[in-house]
């Protein structure tokens, strides 16, 4: 222990000496930041709560490591099975949500888990007029999804299931970058 310390100090002194001697060189030693390697996918997300709600427990990791272009082929039927089991608003054939989608069409949209973003104007998950043109911080995405899952053709079915009655964040968002509120 003590001997190591002495060695260390000796080495340090020597290094300092060498460094102070080599004043003829104006090249500084640059430590390159290393960004090498292969990075392998563990998690992914497009729209909120999709994996949580529609993917069966045993398939959640698989969904996270399936590329979006293959998700519909692999998961749409599972989504449809889980949707019809979950929601009385889709219990009967011919049932639709307020977007006019039946169970197959609705789950066909959701199974490809990407977030559509408009470059032309309003960006919102749903604001009463615009549908799936982005996701803003203040969007009440869960109530929108609950309405589409449980609310039936005109958003009036299963009212106790179609709104969680939490409609805003616990801290106000900022109007300027980085938009998210400071941490608690």
């Amino acid at each position: 222990m003590k001997f190591n310390k002495i060695k260390y100090i000796a080495f340090l002194t020597l290094s300092l000496l060498i460094m102070s001697c080599s004043d003829d060189s104006d090249t500084t030693i640059q430590i390159e930041t290393d960004f090498s390697g292969t990075f392998v996918q563990k998690d992914q997300m497009g729209r909120p709560a999709v994996n949580t709600v529609f993917v069966s427990s045993s398939s959640k990791d698989e969904f996270n490591t399936t590329i979006p272009s293959q998700q519909s082929a692999m998961f749409q039927s599972m989504f449809q099975t889980n949707l019809t089991a979950l929601s009385p608003a889709f219990a009967n054939s011919g049932d639709k949500n307020a977007l006019g989608q039946d169970a197959a069409a609705f789950t066909g949209l959701l199974a490809t888990d990407v977030l559509n973003v408009s470059l032309d104007g309003t960006t919102t998950f749903f604001d009463g007029t615009n549908v799936l043109t982005g996701r803003a911080l203040a969007d009440d995405v869960i109530t929108v999804e609950l309405l589409l899952i449980f609310g039936g053709e005109d958003f009036t079915e299963n009212p106790s299931l179609s709104d969680d009655n939490v409609s805003a964040n616990d801290k106000p968002f900022l109007t300027s970058f980085p938009y998210l509120a400071s941490p608690w």
Partner: peptide
């Protein structure tokens, strides 16, 4: 330029 893009986020760990 205009129209709609599709976006998603991934977390990837170094092998």
């Amino acid at each position: 330029t205009s129209g709609t893009i599709n976006t998603w986020v991934e977390a990837k760990t170094k092998q």
